Amino acid sequence: SMGQARALMGLSAQLDEELDFREGDVITIIGVPEPGWFEGELEGRRGIFPEGFVELLGPLR
């Protein structure tokens, strides 16, 4: 894990590789696949999402 982030708003996945989450969910960050995107894990599910949907809870490791 690289850190954690809290969802500022919900994301309804449009693509298979995207992660669904609700506002307030705390997501474990597991990677940065490309600039502007995070890869995360939530409730046993993994996927990517735009960084603008979340606030980091501390610096990434």
Results as ranks from 00 to 15, higher is better:
Ser1Lys: 01
Ser1Gly: 13
Ser1Phe: 13
Ser1Arg: 09
Met2His: 04
Met2Asn: 04
Gly3His: 03
Gly3Phe: 07
Gly3Cys: 06
Gly3Asn: 13
Gly3Thr: 05
Gly3Ile: 06
Gly3Ala: 06
Gly3Tyr: 04
Gly3Arg: 03
Gly3Val: 09
Gln4Pro: 05
Gln4Met: 13
Gln4Ile: 13
Gln4Tyr: 12
Gln4Trp: 03
Gln4Glu: 03
Gln4Val: 12
Ala5Thr: 03
Arg6His: 01
Arg6Ser: 03
Arg6Phe: 00
Arg6Ile: 11
Ala7Gln: 04
Ala7Met: 03
Ala7Tyr: 04
Ala7Arg: 07
Ala7Ile: 06
Ala7Ser: 02
Leu8Glu: 03
Leu8Arg: 11
Leu8Tyr: 04
Leu8Cys: 06
Leu8Thr: 11
Leu8Ala: 00
Met9Arg: 15
Met9Trp: 07
Met9Ser: 09
Met9Phe: 14
Met9Val: 14
Met9Gln: 14
Met9Lys: 15
Met9Pro: 03
Gly10Met: 01
Gly10Ser: 13
Gly10Leu: 07
Gly10His: 15
Gly10Asn: 15
Gly10Phe: 00
Gly10Trp: 10
Gly10Ala: 15
Gly10Asp: 15
Leu11Cys: 11
Ser12Leu: 04
Ser12Arg: 09
Ser12Val: 11
Ser12Glu: 07
Ser12Phe: 09
Ala13Gly: 10
Gln14Lys: 12
Gln14Phe: 07
Gln14Gly: 13
Gln14Leu: 06
Gln14Tyr: 06
Gln14Arg: 15
Leu15Ile: 14
Leu15Phe: 14
Leu15Asp: 13
Leu15Gly: 15
Asp16Glu: 10
Asp16Ile: 02
Asp16Lys: 06
Asp16Gln: 01
Asp16Cys: 07
Asp16Leu: 02
Glu17Leu: 08
Glu17Thr: 14
Glu17Ser: 13
Glu17Val: 11
Glu17Ala: 12
Glu17Lys: 11
Glu18Tyr: 12
Glu18His: 14
Glu18Ala: 08
Glu18Arg: 11
Glu18Leu: 09
Leu19Gly: 00
Leu19Ser: 01
Asp20Cys: 14
Asp20Gly: 12
Asp20Tyr: 10
Asp20Pro: 03
Asp20Ala: 14
Phe21Ile: 06
Phe21Tyr: 01
Phe21Pro: 03
Phe21Gln: 01
Arg22Ser: 09
Arg22Ile: 11
Arg22Pro: 13
Arg22Cys: 15
Arg22Val: 12
Glu23His: 02
Glu23Phe: 03
Glu23Ala: 14
Gly24Ser: 12
Asp25Ala: 02
Asp25Leu: 01
Asp25Gly: 02
Asp25Gln: 06
Val26Ile: 13
Ile27Met: 15
Ile27Ala: 00
Ile27Pro: 02
Ile27Arg: 08
Ile27Trp: 13
Ile27Asp: 01
Thr28Gly: 08
Thr28Asn: 14
Thr28Arg: 09
Thr28Trp: 02
Thr28Lys: 09
Thr28Asp: 14
Ile29Asp: 03
Ile29Pro: 05
Ile29Arg: 02
Ile30Leu: 13
Ile30Val: 14
Ile30Phe: 09
Gly31Val: 04
Gly31Leu: 00
Gly31Arg: 10
Gly31His: 05
Gly31Glu: 00
Gly31Ser: 11
Val32Ser: 12
Val32Arg: 12
Val32Phe: 07
Val32Ala: 13
Val32Cys: 11
Val32Glu: 11
Glu34Ala: 07
Glu34Thr: 12
Glu34Ser: 12
Glu34Lys: 14
Glu34Leu: 05
Glu34His: 12
Gly36Ser: 00
Gly36Thr: 05
Trp37Ser: 05
Trp37Lys: 15
Trp37Asp: 02
Trp37Ala: 00
Trp37Val: 12
Phe38Ala: 00
Phe38Asp: 06
Phe38His: 14
Phe38Asn: 08
Phe38Ile: 03
Glu39Thr: 10
Glu39Cys: 12
Glu39Gln: 09
Glu39Met: 05
Glu39Ser: 05
Gly40Asp: 09
Gly40Arg: 00
Gly40Ile: 08
Glu41Gly: 07
Glu41Leu: 09
Glu41Val: 08
Leu42Trp: 04
Leu42Glu: 06
Leu42Cys: 07
Leu42Ser: 07
Glu43Leu: 06
Gly44Ile: 03
Gly44Lys: 08
Gly44Trp: 01
Gly44Arg: 02
Gly44Met: 08
Arg45Pro: 03
Arg45Cys: 00
Arg46Tyr: 03
Arg46His: 10
Arg46Val: 09
Arg46Asn: 09
Arg46Pro: 05
Arg46Trp: 01
Arg46Glu: 05
Arg46Gly: 00
Gly47Pro: 04
Gly47Ile: 00
Ile48Lys: 15
Ile48Gly: 01
Ile48His: 08
Ile48Thr: 06
Phe49Pro: 00
Phe49Leu: 07
Phe49Gln: 05
Phe49Met: 04
Glu51Met: 15
Glu51Gly: 13
Glu51Leu: 01
Glu51Cys: 15
Phe53Ile: 12
Phe53Val: 10
Val54Asp: 02
Val54Ile: 00
Glu55Cys: 04
Leu56Met: 07
Leu56Thr: 10
Leu57Phe: 14
Gly58Trp: 07
Gly58Thr: 12
Gly58Pro: 13
Gly58Phe: 10
Gly58Gln: 11
Gly58Lys: 10
Pro59Tyr: 04
Pro59Lys: 01
Pro59Gly: 07
Pro59Gln: 05
Pro59Arg: 03
Leu60Lys: 10
Leu60Ala: 12
Leu60Phe: 08
Leu60Ile: 13
Leu60Gly: 10
Leu60Val: 11
Leu60His: 13
Leu60Met: 13
Leu60Glu: 13
Arg61Ser: 13
Arg61Phe: 08
Arg61Ala: 12
Arg61Ile: 12
